[in-house]
């Protein structure tokens, strides 16, 4: 089980605001790792920086022994890393199928075809609605589409930003079941969640972020049982 992603001493600024203050963590192949923390702790910022959408002022991001520093965001996906962004951000005016095709933009049509079958198996709902315009899907379906779209690049590492946001509890359960399924089929997962309880229940390991710093880390079950985490993030 090798290290897939290694982030070292990441420093990110929004103008003069120091958002990420020296975050280090790693994700091993086959794991589900979660970053939890309150609103504004820097979870999404961390993920967007790893995905290349934001530039770090300093620090290192190593993905499978390749330094991602200076790699533009649109090249990151070809390296085998996909980011499923916060708020889903599906292409509202494009159909379900077109959204999925965009997910496979860097791959050949034949490869995409094969992955499409796989994505439809994982999300039968998307297959039923493949001609529907994405903007008319429900929130849960849009989340499925965003995840399916990210899967279309056949990533080794899938980063998910708040997949449960704004969804009914029954859908949250369904989305997390799919995350576990994707992981079992060989995709390593880096999960950012405000729903710490759900995230810790599926993750192998977890990091707790507080105002741009990692304050705790360790085995997900142990963290879920710790008094500090319970009090701060799991409602006592």
């Amino acid at each position: 089980m090798g290290t897939m992603l290694k982030v070292e001493d990441l420093q990110v600024y929004y103008g003069s605001i120091h958002a990420i203050k020296g975050v280090s963590f790693e994700v091993n192949e086959g794991e589900i790792v979660t970053l939890i923390g309150a609103n504004g702790a820097g979870k999404s910022t961390t993920l967007n920086t790893v995905g290349g959408l934001l530039k770090a002022r300093s620090g290192r991001i190593m993905f499978e022994d390749k330094d991602l520093h200076g790699v533009p965001a649109n090249k990151v996906v070809a390296e085998g890393m996909a980011l499923c962004p916060e708020g889903r951000r599906v292409f509202q005016h494009m159909t379900v199928l077109e959204n999925l095709e965009m997910g496979a933009f860097t791959r050949s049509n034949a490869e995409a075809e094969e992955t499409l079958e796989h994505v439809y198996e994982l999300f039968p709902r998307l297959k039923e609605r493949y001609r529907q315009v994405a903007g008319t899907l429900s929130g849960g379906e849009q989340q499925m589409l965003a995840m399916g779209r990210a899967l279309m690049s056949r990533p080794k590492l899938m980063m998910l930003d708040e997949p449960s946001m704004g969804l009914a509890p029954i859908l949250v359960q369904q989305i997390f079941d799919i995350i576990v399924d994707m992981n079992k089929q060989g995709t390593t997962i880096l999960l950012v969640e405000q729903n710490a309880q759900m995230a810790l229940s599926v993750a192998n390991r977890a990091y707790v972020l507080e105002t741009g710093r990692i304050t705790m880390s360790g085995d997900a079950k142990e963290l879920a049982a710790s008094e500090e985490v319970k009090k701060a993030y799991l409602g006592g």
Binding site: V77, A78, M102
Partner: peptide
Amino acid sequence: KMGKAMRAVSEDKGAATLMGINV
């Protein structure tokens, strides 16, 4: 593919970048 990418960019540049599209 390029034409669809064009529509994707017109909707959401950030999401299009995440797909590997050169905006």
